[in-house]
Write a protein that binds this DNA or RNA. Structure first.
Lengths: 208, 208
DNA sequence: AAGGCTATTGTGCAAGTGTATAGTTACGCC
DNA sequence: GGCGTAACTATACACTTGCACAATAGCCTT
């Protein structure tokens, strides 16, 4: 009588993994690492806690996979913003910067998500290397765009400029996400673009 | 016979509070929020867990006090770097920036400490207002220094420049702390100073 | 020197954590 | 259509967490 066991469907392995990762990301965004418990993740994914262990050898594995997912997604988004080949080099750099400083990339929830992972990155060497790889992938894209500008052929110079511009982006992105009400809509994008233009010596015009 | 109760000394209230906060900060820096358990904090402070409840009505109170402490300390450090009145305005701005981008302010442990708090800031409104207050205190100092530069009398302009420079500082500070081995010693300070000079339109010389 | 105030300790508890493992059921295959 | 596999569930366990509360002992006052 009492034996009503929960009904379930056998999803494909890929879909289940993605669903679990998505659930973990939601919880990380909402409540940080503390909220992303095995039970909460399973619940959010409409699944039983035990199943997590079926797909990931430990919770840590799931966390790492989730972090890699979110970082790669963000890098890909910025990349596509700067791909139109018909743009001149300066416009491509500015497009790359601009997309990072407005929604949906610059968003309180995303910053919260990233903040939730930050501590794990410092602690777990595996997470650290994921972080390093994705950070460098992002910065190298920026550096390639900068090197295409006139006068920036020297790789050492291009690297320094890329680090500086990346710093502007990261700093403003973080602050905008942590204190959204402290800035007017679109303000940080304007400020960021002006700063990057100044750093790169681009004219202060109003581009696309 | 078995009644060897632990010996203890009655410290002054101020000293105990500070000791507990210091212990909490150490643990936050080392292992993030997860490591700063009531028991671990008490242990580090050479005290029994119960005592924490005697000084703080809940653990959350201790965490808030610790965050306020560390943020105020960092702001104070940057402030004193820019106080020498014999410096010209430009040098004062650059001194303010420079001190934030080299040890002991830019330090992996400090960034880790800050990262450990980041998530709590997003969640707890009380922490949020502490964050906002300390962030604005820091940025307003920067803004005051910038407004003293020729041509920056307009508050709107000074505010924007302060936000931009603050973004550079925060971004580079964070990246330097997260991936120390990715940058040469002193590299980020040089890059940060160049970027700030470019943003503020200062000559590219090598100042004090 | 004694007494009292309170800072400090020790013990205990209910709730929540990750993980192990055995049992069950959905679904592809012949 | 039955069967085997593995995707999935359910239960249990050892451990940790924050917090409550009563007992104790260090220090100050007189």
């Amino acid at each position: 009588m009492t034996g009503d066991r929960r009904k379930f469907r056998r999803e494909g392995e890929e879909r289940r993994r993605e669903a679990l990762i998505a659930a973990a990301l939601e919880l990380f965004a909402e409540g940080g690492a503390g909220a992303a418990t095995v039970r909460a993740i399973a619940d959010r994914a409409g699944v039983t806690p035990g199943l997590i262990r079926h797909y990931f050898t430990a919770k840590e594995d799931l966390v790492r996979a989730a972090y890699a997912t979110v970082m790669n997604r963000m890098t890909a988004e910025s990349e596509t913003a700067a791909t139109p080949a018909d743009l001149d080099p300066a416009s491509r750099v500015l497009a790359f910067v601009g997309v990072s400083l407005r929604p949906p990339v610059m968003d309180a929830e995303r910053v919260g998500l990233w903040a939730g992972f930050l501590h794990e990155v410092r602690r777990d060497p595996e997470m650290r290397s994921i972080h390093e790889a994705t950070y460098l992938a992002y910065r190298n894209q920026l550096q390639a765009l900068i090197a295409a500008l006139p006068g920036n052929a020297d790789p050492v110079r291009a690297r320094r400029l890329a680090i500086a511009c990346n710093g502007v982006i990261d700093g403003l992105w973080m602050e905008g996400g942590m204190l959204p009400e402290a800035f007017a809509a679109g303000e940080l994008e304007i400020i960021g673009l002006s700063a990057v233009r100044a750093i790169l010596g681009l004219p202060a015009g109003k581009p696309t």
